[in-house]
Design a protein around this nucleic acid. Structure first.
Length: 150
DNA sequence: CGTTTGACTACGC
DNA sequence: CGCGTAGCCAAAC
């Protein structure tokens, strides 16, 4: 069983997930966190609140040169979370070089660039949950609103 | 040493 | 819809 309360273990799981994000797509801290299940030593409700922040912490100390596409992880608003201005510009540049587009609000449209998550096969072999899906924007022309996956 | 501060989010006002 | 807070914890002040 994974001991996700151990930061090193938690981070290694995060990195393994981030490595799956394809070029030109983005994930979020919350989406990555949603794939993980808390171990018994932490209440689930606490984990749900804290895991996204821990994912952010993991991104903050991403080991360089190991092929971890850290730039593809942004916040739930579709925006870059780096506080450091230089770092933020660098991340945006890296994403734009991959073809990711930022709108006028400096946000990425998940419906266009959001990652649907790893394959079910990969998730199963790594004992991870399917990620919380993005909610599709209801199109007024589509009649009654309905929630659909991605 | 005590305090502040984070690549976050969900939730309650 | 905006704003503050809780949740854990290590590192920097």
């Amino acid at each position: 069983m994974l001991t996700l309360s151990d930061p090193d273990t938690f981070n290694s799981v995060v990195y393994s997930i981030v490595r799956q994000i394809p070029e030109g797509q983005v994930s979020t801290f919350g989406q990555i966190a949603s794939m993980m299940t808390p171990t018994e030593d932490i209440p689930e409700e606490d984990f749900k609140k804290l895991a996204p922040k821990w994912v952010g912490d993991a991104m903050n100390i991403t080991p360089p040169g190991k092929g971890i596409p850290w730039q593809r992880v942004i916040n739930g608003q579709g925006k870059i979370s780096l506080r450091d201005e230089q770092g933020g510009k660098r991340q945006r540049r890296l994403l734009e070089e991959e073809g990711v587009v930022f709108n006028a609000k400096d946000a990425v449209d998940f419906h266009e660039f959001g990652w649907a998550g790893p394959s079910l096969e990969w998730l199963r072999t790594h004992q991870l949950n399917a990620p919380r899906p993005f909610i599709k924007k209801p199109n007024p022309d589509d009649g009654p609103q309905q929630l659909s996956l991605f």
